[in-house]
Amino acid sequence: MMRIASSQMWVHDQDVALAFYTEKLGMEVRQDVTVPEMGNFRWLTVGPPDQPDVAIVLMAIPGPPMVDDATHQQIRDLMGKGFAGTAFLITDDCRKSYEELSRRGVEFSEPPEEYPYGIDSGFRDPSGNSFRLTQLNEDFG
């Protein structure tokens, strides 16, 4: 059987991302390892405290030789538009979570709104990655 261990989010600055994910979203550091043999490559992961087997890799956008300059810029452009990927966060109370995260400094692009599947809101991280914060109704949960 296969299980998902981690998912990756491109970030402009790993330290800024780390502060956002831990201080504002309340996640915890899973791994923060620098590998000198790989040009000081930094493997940085975070995850929700109540899901110890799930991690988000906060991956710095690579440059040459991993990707050429044009590809690097394409990744940055997609991130700036919020189209480099989306993370879906589930909560028991979307409005309460929205208020709590807003107090911590998360800037929402969409406040909680009711949809056929539940209550949903949206925000982006400092690198432009898109997040949906959703309270699913019984038919979808």
Rank of each mutant, 00 (worst) to 15 (best):
R3D: 12
R3I: 07
I4M: 14
A5S: 15
A5G: 13
A5C: 13
A5F: 11
S7E: 10
Q8Y: 05
M9E: 06
W10G: 01
W10D: 04
V11A: 03
H12S: 05
H12F: 02
D13A: 00
Q14C: 05
Q14V: 04
D15S: 09
F20A: 12
Y21H: 07
T22L: 07
T22F: 07
K24N: 05
K24I: 02
G26F: 14
E28W: 14
V29I: 12
R30L: 02
Q31G: 09
D32W: 09
V33Y: 14
T34S: 03
T34H: 02
E37W: 01
G39V: 01
G39Y: 02
G39A: 04
N40S: 13
F41R: 05
R42H: 10
W43F: 12
W43T: 07
W43L: 12
V46Q: 12
V46D: 15
V46T: 13
P48C: 14
P48M: 15
D50W: 10
Q51Y: 14
P52V: 11
D53H: 15
V54P: 04
V54Y: 13
V54K: 10
A55K: 13
A55D: 12
A55V: 03
A55E: 15
L58S: 13
L58E: 13
M59S: 10
A60T: 06
A60C: 06
I61R: 15
P62M: 03
P62E: 04
M66Y: 12
M66C: 09
M66R: 08
V67C: 07
V67F: 04
A70F: 07
A70T: 05
A70R: 13
T71V: 09
T71K: 01
T71A: 12
T71Y: 13
H72Q: 12
Q73Y: 07
Q73G: 06
Q74W: 00
R76L: 06
R76D: 05
R76M: 10
R76P: 00
L78Y: 11
M79Q: 04
G80L: 00
K81M: 03
K81Y: 03
G82W: 00
G82P: 03
F83G: 01
F83K: 02
A84Q: 08
G85H: 11
G85I: 01
G85R: 06
G85F: 08
A87I: 06
A87L: 10
L89M: 14
T91L: 11
D92Y: 00
D92E: 05
D93H: 03
K96L: 08
K96P: 04
S97V: 11
E99C: 05
E99L: 12
E100T: 09
S102F: 12
R103L: 08
R103E: 14
R104M: 14
V106Y: 15
V106K: 14
V106R: 13
E107N: 11
E107P: 05
E107L: 08
E107F: 02
S109T: 04
P112D: 13
E113K: 09
E114D: 09
Y115T: 00
Y115H: 11
P116Y: 02
Y117H: 08
Y117P: 10
G118R: 01
G118L: 08
G118E: 05
D120W: 08
S121G: 02
G122Y: 09
F123Q: 05
R124A: 07
D125G: 11
P126H: 01
S127R: 03
S130G: 05
R132P: 10
L133C: 14
Q135T: 00
E138D: 15
E138Y: 06
D139M: 01
G141M: 08
